[in-house]
């Protein structure tokens, strides 16, 4: 589904990704972990098409298409969804209108008829239940004045509405209390259907207690330096990142 080869990216003069290789198959959940500043969020942003980053080398193919060649909205229409670490507040645009526009743009791109008001509302009611998001919230301006937890739930709600084939969760657990963490994670789990894939970027193990990954990758200094299964995440939780950092740094010196 997604193949990342030798991906290099920088922001201004600073090189952040220095040769990422990753293969994601349908239905898989990959966790990307790593210390602060290792490039985890950059990877998610580059995949979604954030303009601040410049890709200097490598390639990304998504379902056979050159992803890096597509504008962010086309990537979304092709089935990529980024759940933001810091969802943006947009005054004056209600979540409902925003999603209706988004959904119908994506449908248009894929040659489908737009949903009418009744179909849209039906889908909305259904998906709102997934993350226990209140109707009243959806009628308000997008994320404006939402609590941290409400914003993250809204991200997962949007993902449920747009039904992407690949969900990128960028530190979705940050800023969540215990209950919100569970609600968000359960929302994601309900979207796991054997075909939809996820990349879960996180600093901690706690989200992975709920969203159990098939693979865990450790990112450090812009490269994947270790890959394993869910047990690797547990090991990291216990031992921290220093032992991996030391291993890598020792190799670099040698």
């Amino acid at each position: 589904m997604l193949t990342i080869s030798n991906l290099h990216a920088r922001i201004e003069e600073k090189e952040i990704l220095r040769g990422i290789n990753l293969e994601i198959k349908p239905g898989e959940v990959h966790a990307i972990m790593g210390p602060n500043g290792s490039g985890k969020s950059t990877l998610a942003s580059v995949l979604a098409g954030r303009e601040d980053y410049e890709v200097t080398d490598g390639s990304v193919t998504f379902n056979g298409k050159d992803l890096l060649d597509l504008a962010p909205e086309k990537r979304a229409a092709e089935g990529i969804f980024l759940a933001f670490q810091y969802p943006v507040e947009i005054p004056g645009v209600t979540t409902i209108n925003f999603l209706k526009t988004a959904l119908n743009e994506i449908r248009k791109y894929n040659g489908q008829e737009p949903l009418d008001a009744a179909q849209f509302l039906k889908r909305m009611k259904e998906k709102a239940k997934l993350v226990k998001i209140d109707d009243a919230l959806l009628k308000r301006s997008l994320n404006e004045g939402f609590s941290g937890g409400e914003k993250k739930r809204n991200e997962i709600f949007q993902m449920a509405m747009l039904e992407p084939s690949l969900g990128l969760l960028d530190e979705t657990d940050s800023g969540l209390d215990i209950d919100a963490l569970r609600i968000v994670a359960e929302g994601v789990n309900q979207l796991r259907d054997g075909k939809r894939s996820f990349v879960v970027v996180t600093h901690y193990q706690r989200l992975l207690d709920y969203i159990v990954p098939d693979f865990v990758h450790v990112l450090y200094k812009g490269r994947i330096v270790k890959s394993g299964t869910k047990e690797l995440a547990l090991e990291l939780e216990e031992k921290g990142y220093d032992w991996i950092k030391n291993e890598v740094d020792a190799l670099e010196v040698a």
């Binding site: 098409g49 962010p72 947009i90 999603l99 988004a102 743009e105």
Partner: peptide, 12 residues
Amino acid sequence: AIFYMQSRGIPK
């Protein structure tokens, strides 16, 4: 905010 909307499929 523009990127946020784009990332949901809305053209720039």
